[in-house]
Structures are given as structure tokens and as C-alpha cells.
């Protein structure tokens, strides 16, 4: 059995990513505003310790799609940079695919991929196909695997002509699709996605999301996604990890988060005559559209949706009704506020 086989056998037993008590502290300097403070800082600098990660723990199984979210400065990027071998942590244990990322960088990074929404890995003045061929040499990808992966990804991402045009002449959406191909030609087992849909139109976003889901299903690739686009999270993530001020404040499925912090269902009702609001502590008015139309929030842990319909149907003649989950933005805002 060769080494590669041995490692993939291990994958099925061990988690793809394991993080234990991970800490990262940066040393930076404080600088006030204005010229005087700049001059003062030029001569003498007051150093500050920034605790980017304060002892976080989590693990990710092979084949999972994880949404790694948090407000700006929460520690997401620091964590991903440590996981991808770019940064050394202050303390803690990390293994990804059995490797300690910062200790065996060269052998490790051959098994991962990364796509950054705000940084390009493509050669600006050359067509993407030239960048792909360079990746083939860098990752020593066998000819057959290169051809097969390229053909498949070009088809899924719908970019057959695009890859032959200079990168600088491509639209953002076309470029991002090519960034995906560039990052995944070598069949990485774990892929880090840092805001991969930022600035894209709805069609490009949809194609990229579909691609991620299909690749995950077909190849069992683990995706770790950081994004501020919560639609990405809803569509892709099987599990979300919320990080804030260097600590993990939530680690579970989106439905579990909704159940915990959703605060009930949003029910919009239109009646023939002015609506009589039911007297219940579980019902609050969210939006008063008109006397005949209102939006309620029903705390479904206290009052079932069926009971609410019975309750409101007693004194009102309902013409139309819609029941919706609370918007994910509101739930995430609650998580951040609690943290």
C-alpha cells in the first residue's frame, strides 16, 4: 500500500480538520490621529497585543461544507490562514488531512486549494488556460487527470471560450469561475473559500454555488467557506461555525440556529376587514402594512402555527396568508449581538 492510500484510509476515520485550543496573538502598535501622534509614533511606539484567536476548538469531517462566519475582525481569516499553513499559531494543535499545516507546508498545500474573492491567482495579461497549465506543473498533475478535471469544470462552470481570452478582459463572474478551475485542477481534498461570490451577479453566484454542491457530491471535497453573503450559507453550508472576538459562539446546523434564535415564524395576513390581533404573549406585530394587512412574529415554541391560525381565524375573515422562516440576516445579527 502506498503512502497516499494510507493517508486516504486515515481520512475516513479521522476528521479532515481538527483544531484544539488554537490561539493566535499579534503584536501591533497603537497610533493616535494627526501629524503630532504620527511623529510620536515614529520615535516611540506603544505596542499592543491583539488576541485574534482565544483558544478555539472544532473539527470538520471529510466531505462537509462548513460556513465559517463572523463580523469583520472576528478572527475568521486568521483561523483560515493558520489552517492553510500561511500563519504560525501562538499555541494549540491543528491537523488538516493528518498534516500540521505550518510544519510541513510544501507537502501539505499540495492537498488543499483556496479561492479568494478579492485576490486573483490568474495571470492578468494571459488567458486563464496559461495559468491552468502552470498549475499543472506546480502540482505535478498527470496529463489524464488535468484533461479530465479541466473538461469537467469547464462544462460545469460554462466557460469553454472564456478560458482562451486574456484574464484582464473577463468579467468578474467569468474570472471567478476560472479562479475555481485554477484552484481545483489538482483534486484538493479540502478547499478554503474566502468570499467566493463577492460582487457577483445572481447568475454567476448561482452557477458557482451549484458547482460547489456538485463537486462536493461527486468528489467528496470538503469546503470551508467564509462569507458575508448569507445566501451562500443558506444554499451551501451543512453546518455553520460562528466566530466572534476570537471565540466560537455557535457551531451547529443552520436549522439548529434558527430553532435557537429564530424567534418564531413570520406570518403575513390580509383580511377583508381591519384585523383583530389575537391576545397572546407568543404573538407580536412586526409590520403594520395597513389596517387590513399585518405581519406577525409567532413564537412557535410557545404557540404552534396551527393554533395561531385557529386563533386569528376566530375574529377575522382571512383573504391571504404567507408563513416564512425568519430572514437569516436577523438570526445572524442576534448571534453577533449576543456575543
Amino acid at each position: 500500500m502506498n503512502q497516499k492510500e494510507g493517508r486516504s484510509e486515515q481520512h475516513s476515520i479521522l476528521p479532515a480538520v481538527s483544531v484544539k485550543n488554537l490561539k493566535k496573538t499579534y503584536l501591533t502598535h497603537k497610533r493616535g490621529e494627526g501629524l503630532l501622534q504620527s511623529l510620536k509614533s515614529f520615535v516611540w511606539r506603544e505596542h499592543l497585543e491583539i488576541h485574534a484567536l482565544r483558544g478555539i476548538n472544532f473539527s470538520i469531517q471529510a466531505g462537509e461544507i462548513i460556513g465559517f462566519i463572523g463580523p469583520n475582525g472576528a478572527g475568521k481569516s486568521t483561523c483560515l490562514k493558520i489552517l492553510s499553513g500561511i500563519l504560525h499559531p501562538t499555541s494549540g494543535d491543528v491537523t488538516v488531512l493528518g498534516y500540521v499545516p505550518w510544519k510541513s507546508r510544501i507537502s501539505y498545500v499540495g492537498h488543499i486549494g483556496a479561492v479568494f474573492g478579492q485576490k486573483s491567482q490568474l495571470w492578468w495579461d494571459l488567458p486563464p488556460i496559461d495559468s491552468f497549465r502552470l498549475m499543472k506543473s506546480i502540482y505535478s498533475i498527470p496529463d489524464a487527470q488535468y484533461e479530465k478535471n479541466l473538461r469537467e469544470m469547464v462544462r460545469l462552470l460554462e466557460v469553454p471560450e472564456v478560458i482562451h481570452r486574456p484574464t484582464r478582459s473577463l468579467s468578474l463572474g467569468e474570472r471567478m469561475k476560472c479562479e475555481f478551475i485554477n484552484a481545483m485542477l489538482h483534486n484538493p481534498a479540502v478547499v478554503f473559500l474566502d468570499e467566493p461570490t463577492i460582487g457577483l451577479d445572481v447568475f454567476a453566484k448561482e452557477t458557482i454555488r451549484e458547482f460547489i454542491l456538485r463537486w462536493n457530491r461527486l468528489r467528496g471535497t470538503t469546503f470551508i467557506l467564509t462569507t458575508h453573503d448569507l445566501q451562500d450559507i443558506e444554499t451551501l453550508a451543512q453546518r455553520i461555525i460562528v466566530i466572534d472576538h476570537g471565540r466560537i459562539v455557535f457551531d451547529n446546523s443552520l436549522s439548529a440556529l434558527k430553532a435557537r434564535l429564530g424567534g418564531g415564524k413570520h406570518v403575513r395576513i390580509r383580511c377583508k376587514r381591519p384585523i383583530i390581533t389575537p391576545r397572546s404573549r407568543a404573538v407580536t406585530i412586526k409590520n403594520l402594512i395597513s389596517r387590513e394587512e399585518k405581519e406577525f412574529i409567532v413564537d412557535t415554541q410557545r404557540l404552534g402555527i396551527g393554533e395561531f391560525i385557529k386563533l386569528i381565524g376566530r375574529g377575522n375573515q382571512i383573504l391571504d396568508m404567507s408563513i416564512e422562516e425568519p430572514p437569516i440576516q436577523e438570526i445572524i445579527k442576534k448571534v453577533y449581538k449576543r456575543a
Binding site: K81, S84, G85, I86, R105, I106, S107, Y108, V109, G110, I112, A114, F116, K119, Q121, I138, Y139
Partner: peptide, 14 residues
């Protein structure tokens, strides 16, 4: 300066 050294560090080469 552009924060792009990270991309080079992600390649399995010197």
C-alpha cells in the same frame, strides 16, 4: 504590500 504573498505560500513549491 498587496497581501498576495499568501497565494505563493499556498503553492507546493519553494
Amino acid at each position: 504590500e498587496a497581501g498576495e504573498l499568501d497565494l505563493v505560500l499556498l503553492q507546493p513549491r519553494s
